[in-house]
Design a protein around this nucleic acid. Structure first.
Length: 129
RNA sequence: GGAGUCGGCCAGGCAAUCGCGUUUUCGUCCUUGUGACGAAAGGGAGGAAAGUCCGGGCUCCACAGGGCAGGGUGCCAGGUAACCUCUGGGAGGCGUGAGUCUACGGAAAGUGCAGCAGAAAAUAUACCGCCCGCCCCAUUAUUAAUAAUGUGGGCAGGUAAGGGUGAAAUGGUGCGGUAAGAGCGCACCGCGCAACUGGUAACAGUUUGUGGCAUGGUAAACCCCACCCGGAGCAAGACCAAAUAGGAAGACUAUAUCGUGGCCCGCGGUGUCUUCGGGUAGGUCGCUUGAGGUUGUUGGUGACAACAGUCCCAGAUGAAUGAUUGCCCACGACAGAACCCGGCUUACCGGCCGGCUCCCACU
């Protein structure tokens, strides 16, 4: 699959929308936030802080892994509505191998999509969990 | 062969599949454009891209001008757009040597500073000593006065040889000299000044003359001297332009105020008149052809320069340059361009090449 510029979130206001009322998924490596975007495709945004990784080389590595994972897995999946994803790596992720991070991400994608479908089905009812 | 020293180079490789920017070409579509989509081909991080410590280019402020303040540089010459820890040379320190290190101008313009130790730390001084003289004491000689002697005491003076302190104590060694001593005198060494010679110069000298010898250290303390430095930075700056708002440009000019930077001068705007276009979000440019790389020739010890040929080698902007698999090996460190160059500094797994020095062995 391709990963063109249209599949990326480019403006601060788009990030703000996701931060507003997101679907969450987190583990020691990443926090993933998502929200239905009402477009023809999923979109990806990243926020890799200097706090998470002080070296530019490390930040680039994480961003490339996230993009690659998104491209190979998420773009093919069909869910109730297309989503905007924002991936926030933690400082812990800096020291992990590529393999570990890729595994972690694929779990996140599935989890977020399932949650999105559930909330779409149950949206009329209040959640009594 | 071993030890060392200096310089240069590389920064895992190959293949397959998938993917991201960029440039060019071609095709399709339409709203005919700096368009969208697709295909092919080319190219896609570093030696430090880093730290932002210096120096420039470039942009705007006046064409960056005068003065004060402030800052930088600091042996000599050269190279450079400019700076430097660049190049060559000099001096001094270290090393057997190849080499290497040096904030390396001025302390007889002035001011300041120096713990402990030591007698004394800057107009030299005199603690222990050494020595002359006088007085007392003791002993000996002597009739006494007196004289001589002293591991003896005191007073006044002469000394800086010797001792000890310190990072540093007012030239060193020897001989003469003297009461003891002293550049007091002499020889040699060292030092200062002048001349001469060599060198563009710093500086040097088996050279000559002269001076008995002075001006201790510290200027990464103030300072003095010489030379240099305007400020801000690509979020510079230029252009296109929704919403919104009513100003903007040119000419002339007293005060006040702003641009303007640490300050003053100076310069430009706000004021008046004339004429109609200005501008935030966002976008485009700036943005990579350059003090460029590379090959050769010539000049130079060299840094480097000149000429000729040849090449185009990242240009992103929520920010591309990656992932997976297989094989090989030395098993892969530090680390990611953000306007561009020249240096410096710091980080770093390892590997390769060359010059030179010393030691050992063999011929």
């Amino acid at each position: 699959m391709k990963f063109s510029r249209q599949l990326r979130m480019l403006h601060p206001r788009e990030f703000k929308q996701v931060f507003n009322q997101p679907i969450r998924s987190s583990d020691p490596c990443f926090r993933v936030l998502a929200r239905v975007n009402g477009k023809q495709h999923h979109r990806l945004g990243m926020a890799v802080s200097k706090k998470a990784c002080s070296k530019a080389v490390g930040r680039n590595r994480i961003k490339r892994l996230v993009r690659e994972s998104f491209r190979t897995q998420q773009a093919g999946q069909v869910s109730a509505g297309n989503l905007d994803f924002v991936v926030l790596p933690t400082a812990w992720a800096t020291n992990q191998s590529n393999e570990t991070l890729v595994k972690s991400l694929s779990v996140h994608w599935q989890k977020v999509c399932r949650k999105a479908e559930d909330s779409n089905d149950n949206s009329p009812k209040p959640n009594d969990g």
